[in-house]
Computed example of a mutant assay.
Amino acid sequence: MTSEPLLLTRRDPARNMARFYVLIVEPDLFDGAALTRNWGRIGTKGRFRIDLFGSRQEAEHRLVALARSKVRRGYRQGAEAG
């Protein structure tokens, strides 16, 4: 079962900043879970990273930790990113 993607955005027109960060937990082929991250400037494809975990719970714990870190840096749950 795939979780809903978590979309975070950060905009600062004074610094010409418009960024997105998307996190999603998905099952992998070996009864574990994959945390997929996509980030970059709004309007681009951005970069991707996939981290594999032994369980869905571990992947979701990491998702929460990353989301907290991004919120501390000024990201907010936001509208579409590109």
Rank of each mutant, 00 (worst) to 15 (best):
T2I: 14
T2D: 15
P5Q: 09
L6Y: 04
L6V: 11
L6E: 07
L7N: 10
L7K: 04
L8D: 02
R10P: 08
D12W: 05
R15W: 05
R19G: 10
R19S: 14
F20M: 07
F20V: 06
F20T: 01
Y21R: 01
L23S: 09
D28C: 06
L29I: 12
L29V: 12
L29N: 11
F30C: 03
F30T: 08
F30Q: 04
F30I: 11
D31S: 15
G32V: 05
G32M: 04
A33D: 02
L35W: 06
T36G: 08
T36F: 11
T36H: 12
T36Y: 12
T36D: 14
T36E: 14
R37H: 04
G40D: 06
G40R: 07
R41H: 03
I42P: 00
I42F: 02
I42Y: 01
G43N: 05
G43A: 09
T44L: 05
K45Q: 10
R47V: 08
R49F: 14
D51Q: 09
D51L: 06
L52S: 06
F53Y: 15
G54R: 00
G54P: 01
G54L: 01
E58Y: 06
L63V: 04
L63A: 03
A65C: 11
L66Y: 09
K70M: 08
V71N: 02
V71A: 01
V71S: 00
R72N: 13
R72G: 14
G74E: 10
G74M: 09
G74Y: 05
Y75R: 08
R76T: 10
Q77M: 13
A79N: 14
A81K: 03
A81M: 09
A81Y: 06
G82P: 04
G82M: 00
G82W: 00
